[in-house]
Computed example of a mutant assay.
Amino acid sequence: MSIPVTMAHEIPGREVAEIIGIARGSVVKARFFVRDIFAALRNLIGGEVNEYSRLLEESREEAYARMLTHAQSLGADAIISFRFSTSAIMEGSSEILAYGTAVKLK
């Protein structure tokens, strides 16, 4: 079951009946030395570092899916004020956090 997710503070045409709390999902990913080799070569010739772009996209999707699962476990009908955040955990690894306000709709 998929629930509506928006970066806005409301769902058009729907009214928030109750704020449940924060729904969140996070993932920590580390770089892999094989990717680093390809990225270093790409850095020499310029252009997008596809290896890292794919790693970040996969991480965002996983964090987003975990947030949806958390929201559903809270009994939410929707998530408003959705955001992504990233932070470095240690050299070579980062956390991707997906979060928003889990709500019940009328």
Rank of each mutant, 00 (worst) to 15 (best):
F82S: 07
A8H: 10
E48Y: 03
G13R: 12
A71S: 04
D36V: 14
N43A: 08
E61S: 07
Y64E: 05
V28L: 01
A30D: 01
Y64K: 00
V16R: 08
L44R: 03
A40M: 04
S87V: 02
I79W: 13
K29F: 02
S85L: 10
N50M: 13
E62V: 08
Q72K: 14
R14Y: 11
R83P: 02
F84G: 00
S26L: 02
H9Q: 10
E58W: 14
E91P: 15
Q72G: 08
E18I: 05
V28E: 04
L97Y: 00
I37E: 12
E95W: 01
E10Y: 02
N50A: 13
S85C: 07
E62P: 09
A23C: 10
A30E: 07
M7Y: 14
A102P: 00
V34P: 15
G25T: 00
M90H: 15
G100R: 07
A17D: 03
E61R: 00
F82T: 11
R42V: 14
A102T: 08
M67E: 00
T101A: 11
F33Q: 08
V103F: 05
L44A: 05
G100C: 07
S85M: 03
I3S: 01
G13S: 13
D36W: 14
E18M: 15
S93W: 12
V16S: 03
G47L: 09
M90S: 14
E51F: 01
I19M: 14
M67Q: 07
E95P: 01
R31I: 15
E58A: 03
D77S: 03
A78N: 08
G47A: 11
N50S: 06
S93C: 10
V27I: 10
S53D: 14
G21I: 06
E51T: 12
S81K: 09
G21T: 02
Y64Q: 06
A88I: 14
G46N: 04
E58Y: 10
S73Y: 08
M90W: 14
S93D: 06
